[in-house]
Amino acid sequence: MTAPPVLSVGNLAKAYGGVHALDGVSFDVHAGELLALIGPNGAGKSTCFNVVNGQIRPDAGTVRLEGRDITGLPPRAIARLGVGRTFQIAAVFGSLTVLANVETALLASRGASFGLWRPQDGQARGEALDLLAQTGLAALADRPATGLAYGDVKRLELAIAIAGSPRLLLMDEPTAGMGTHERLALIGLVRRLAAARSLAVLFTEHSMDVVFGHATRVIVLARGRVIADGSVEEIRADPQVRAVYLGRSAATGERGS
């Protein structure tokens, strides 16, 4: 028997004047799955992503998290229900150490204040160190975040996002600004964490080497509609997708438009 989806999006619609940014968009994301949401500029990716995250209220349709209707809830409420998020421009506390960044995220996920935390408590520190080990940052635990290389900042942001043990992780252009080696290493790490934690991942991405190399499923949007939903192989071979979006990037792994 197939497990119910972690995220279920049903018939989402959103219009701005006469422009339909979303027009009946539906899809599910299951535990352990990396679902890539791609499409040309103006396809509706950002609108769909922000509706799921609660930043935009849809005109119609539903967003369900493990069966619970979260449509229109604010981002903070959605985060408390088990949704983590990373951003195109990484957001970390530069004045804190790498370890303190993750400790702060752990405490926030429990409704605690960093100002009330005491080092001797130990629990948050131990959990934070474990998260840093999982994301390859253990050796940098005591370094200020402001001095990190960009790839390490992105890994720290990932550690912060999963600190609250979310069931769903939303990643907006997770490899933006990264070189080929760095972006493939980061998305490979995300895939391993998703499998180990049974974490559902929904991400937008322009780099086709990332999508085709690591996504377990791909959805393609065009003009607010889903035009394809399938495996990497199915998306590569879909003539409509090649015509409206992939072009030569399907064969070369270059960035789409």
Rank of each mutant, 00 (worst) to 15 (best):
S231Y: 14
A112F: 08
A100H: 14
A194I: 02
G256M: 12
G111T: 02
V25N: 06
L35W: 04
G24K: 07
G179F: 06
A141C: 00
L193K: 03
T180A: 15
F27G: 00
A124Q: 12
G10T: 15
S231I: 15
F27R: 03
A79R: 12
R236D: 01
F212M: 15
A60R: 06
M1T: 14
D69W: 01
R191N: 09
L189V: 11
T204H: 07
K45M: 00
E234Q: 14
A3N: 01
Q240D: 08
G32H: 07
L37P: 10
A139S: 10
I162G: 09
T47Y: 06
L12T: 11
A176Y: 03
A251G: 01
A91L: 13
I162A: 10
A105S: 02
T2G: 11
R217C: 03
T252F: 04
D172P: 12
G10I: 15
L99R: 06
R125M: 02
I235S: 07
H30T: 13
R143S: 03
G115Q: 07
L189T: 09
Q134D: 12
A215K: 11
L34N: 04
V244F: 02
L73R: 04
T216L: 09
F203T: 07
D229N: 14
D209V: 15
R236A: 06
H20L: 06
A195H: 07
G122K: 13
L186T: 05
A215G: 10
P75Q: 07
I219K: 01
G224P: 00
T175K: 12
E127A: 15
T175E: 10
K154Q: 13
D142L: 11
I227R: 02
S95F: 15
N11M: 08
D142P: 07
G164W: 11
A60C: 01
I219G: 01
L99K: 01
M178G: 00
R255C: 07
R225Y: 11
Q120K: 15
I187M: 15
D172T: 11
G115C: 04
D59I: 05
P239V: 05
A185T: 13
A250F: 02
L35Y: 04
S231R: 15
V51N: 03
S207R: 07
G253K: 09
A141N: 00
T216F: 12
M171W: 00
R197Q: 08
R85I: 09
I227H: 04
A200W: 00
V52L: 03
G72Q: 05
A90R: 02
R68D: 07
T71E: 01
A139V: 10
S8A: 15
G54T: 14
A112D: 10
A128P: 05
Q123S: 14
W117V: 03
R242I: 15
G24Y: 09
Q134I: 09
F49P: 02
I187S: 11
D23N: 07
I38C: 07
L65A: 00
C48N: 04
D152K: 04
M1G: 15
F27E: 02
V29C: 09
L169A: 12
G94I: 10
